[in-house]
């Protein structure tokens, strides 16, 4: 029970980060390997504002989100859009996008190390225990989970109800047909990429309330987010959330029952199982 709840709480925050990545990949078709760095930047912002000005991380979100949105929009327009234009086929774009986003990720890490040093950073926010079903959990984790759940739900509703959300889903199913019904695909891709980055950065601010991070932890989160997106299925919100929870519980289980040093091995074991048995994701149809 203890493992289950801790795992679900961790998975909830993973879900938020993975949703950001899924939004980017599903719509703009660019696998953003610098996604984890966006998370660390969000976390850095929360950390700095909290230690300098005692600003609650939950308020920082409202500053981080628009800034990350603009930053990601610029990244897409300036760096990625030219690649989409020059690519002759999907494979070429894939290779270019992988190299570029990796490059970006290293540049961001490099800048952060240069500006803030390579130390771990953490701060104490709502570090009080709270009792659920007779066991104690950190209040910050529970609050973080609540935030993540709220944001996931909002995103899900927005994608399914609003006009813009509908357009985004249309593009993620078929960019060609979306163009035919009058959707401006390049513009929407840029917006979805920006929104995805913003969601991830917010996830970073939230996760920084209870995890210790440093400038180079981003890649770990990128990897986990990617595993979640693949498990859940590209462009599938429900699948992503379910996969994130599965990963959260799986990791927590391995960490507490076997060894905390084996979390990545656990994530990989899940990944391999999915690759071998359901490469199209939990809810995905058989590829045709």
């Amino acid at each position: 029970m203890d493992i289950l709840i801790t795992g679900l709480i961790l998975g909830g925050t993973y879900a938020l980060i993975a949703l950001g990545l899924n939004l980017q990949y599903g719509v703009s078709r660019i696998m953003n390997l610098a996604n984890g760095e966006m998370l660390v930047i969000g976390a850095f912002a929360a950390f700095t504002l909290f230690t300098v000005g005692q600003v609650s991380p939950l308020l920082t979100i409202f500053l981080v989100a628009p800034l990350a949105y603009v930053l990601n929009w610029l990244i897409y327009r300036i760096m990625l859009r030219p690649l989409v234009k020059r690519a002759k086929n999907r494979g070429m774009l894939e290779v270019d996008a992988i190299l570029t986003t990796f490059g970006l990720s290293f540049v961001m890490v490099g800048i952060m190390i240069w500006a803030f040093g390579g130390d771990y950073f953490s701060y104490s926010y709502l570090a009080r225990p709270i009792t659920i079903f007779g066991d104690n959990y950190g209040l910050n984790r529970v609050v973080a989970f609540g935030c993540a759940a709220l944001l996931c739900a909002a995103l899900y509703l927005w994608l399914n109800v609003s006009r813009a959300g509908m357009a985004i889903r249309a593009v993620s199913v078929s960019p060609e047909n979306a163009r035919l019904v009058g959707i401006d695909v390049p513009k929407l891709s840029a917006r979805a990429f920006a929104l995805g980055g913003a969601v991830t950065a917010v996830g970073g601010a939230v996760i920084s309330t209870f995890l210790t991070l440093d400038a180079s932890t981003g890649v770990m989160f990128t990897m986990k987010a990617l595993i979640i997106v693949i498990m859940g299925g590209v462009g599938d919100v429900r699948g992503t959330i379910l996969a994130a929870l599965v990963l959260g519980v799986g990791e927590t289980f391995v960490a507490s029952v076997i060894d905390p040093g084996l979390t990545l091995v656990a994530a990989y074991a899940l990944f391999i199982l999915i690759l071998l048995f359901r490469p199209q994701g939990f809810f995905g149809r058989k590829p045709t």
Partner: peptide
């Protein structure tokens, strides 16, 4: 058998995963 993105992600973590397993 799968697309290039899956392969990159998998190989990216392979070293880290092996390191964790060896350490353990």
């Amino acid at each position: 058998r799968l697309s290039g993105v899956y392969f990159v992600i998998f190989t990216l973590g392979l070293a880290e995963m092996t390191r964790q397993a060896v350490t353990w």
